[in-house]
């Protein structure tokens, strides 16, 4: 198919200038992957598999490594065109819950997604479920105003589950299509805060059949190996259904989502590429892979140009 061929092509330039497959090349590959936060374990696994393939198929040309590697990483990324899409309840209210550690971009992503749904002609309501952090409610309200959607809120310090409950009732009575629920950032090792999140989840389950239709864990691309622990722990608490990878407009690569996707079977559904309302995109694995190797390719090209 078209996507898979562009996907395979994504790293095509990496080993172009190389004449042979040797230890240096494997080592450089390891460094690129680890440097992109792919993690030691997944990197070793990928490089080992690559070595095995090279041996078995008697591959001599470095150029042949690229499609192989792309394919391997592609297999690890659990998504596909179907699974990368948000699960939308076509004949009624869709409830989407956002979870994650502090400062990753939950509230901003909600603002962006509200903007997108609104421009698709959907009726959107936001629930200000972060009643803890200073100014969190006002932050969501500002987004609500900016994109023109209603925000259901209580006072600071209120029970977040009660806010979500009210959000659901309001969304129902206003015949909204989409309810986006913000929650306070919390570190996954805080037991009481994870219990609070479970309660929010239960309220959504109870009030709307089939809800929450998505539980999205928001991960900051700048985060290292701890993102895997985040995905595991939030997954255990509230049955996460997908990943939003934010801040990909920086220089961090977010390589840890490969391990997360592989080990937990979670698709990446959206990526954040900035702070504005339209800086939200569908996950494109070819683009992601290209970015993973981009610096290495540029470095090689710069070196080649110097010679």
């Amino acid at each position: 198919s078209k996507t898979s061929s562009t996907f395979v092509g994504a790293v095509n330039d990496l080993f172009k200038g190389r004449s042979k497959i040797d230890e240096d090349l494997y080592e450089e590959l390891e460094e690129i992957l680890i440097g992109a936060d792919v993690g030691v374990k997944t990197t070793m696994e990928l490089v080992e598999r690559l070595r095995a393939e090279v041996k078995e198929r008697k591959i001599k040309d470095p150029a042949e490594l690229q499609p192989l590697l792309s394919e391997m990483i592609g297999e690890m990324l659990a998504g596909n065109e179907e699974r990368n899409k948000l699960n939308i309840n076509e004949d009624g209210l869709t409830v989407i819950l956002f979870v994650g550690v502090n400062g990753v971009g939950k509230t901003t992503t909600i603002g962006k997604l509200a903007h997108r749904f609104k421009s698709e002609g959907k009726k959107v309501v936001l629930a200000a479920g972060d009643t803890f952090r200073a100014g969190a409610i006002e932050q969501l309200e500002t987004w609500g105003k900016r994109v023109g959607v209603d925000v259901i809120k209580h006072q600071a310090g209120a029970d977040p589950a009660a806010v979500i409950y009210d959000g659901i009732q309001a969304a129902k009575s206003r015949k909204a299509d989409i309810l986006l629920c913000d929650t306070a950032g919390r570190l996954q090792n805080k037991v009481n805060l994870m219990e609070e999140l479970k309660k929010i989840h239960r309220v959504a389950q109870r009030e709307v059949p089939g809800a929450p239709h998505e539980v999205l864990i928001v991960l900051d691309a700048t985060t290292g190996q701890n993102a895997l622990v985040q995905a595991q722990q939030f997954g255990e608490a509230v049955n996460v259904s997908g990943i939003v990878l934010t801040k990909l407009d920086g220089t961090a690569k977010g390589g840890i989502v490969i391990a997360i996707s592989h080990e937990l079977g979670l698709p990446v559904k959206l990526v954040g590429l900035g702070e504005k309302a339209d800086d939200l995109q569908e996950f494109d694995s070819a683009q992601f892979l290209h970015a993973l190797f981009k610096d290495a390719i540029e470095e090689e090209e710069a070196e080649a140009a110097e010679k």
Binding site: I34, G103, T222, G224, A227, G250, T251, A252
Partner: peptide, 12 residues
């Protein structure tokens, strides 16, 4: 700096 930052911490 967020203590959870990965490899990019040095660039930043």
């Amino acid at each position: 700096v967020d203590a959870m930052t990965g490899q990019d911490a040095v660039n930043v």
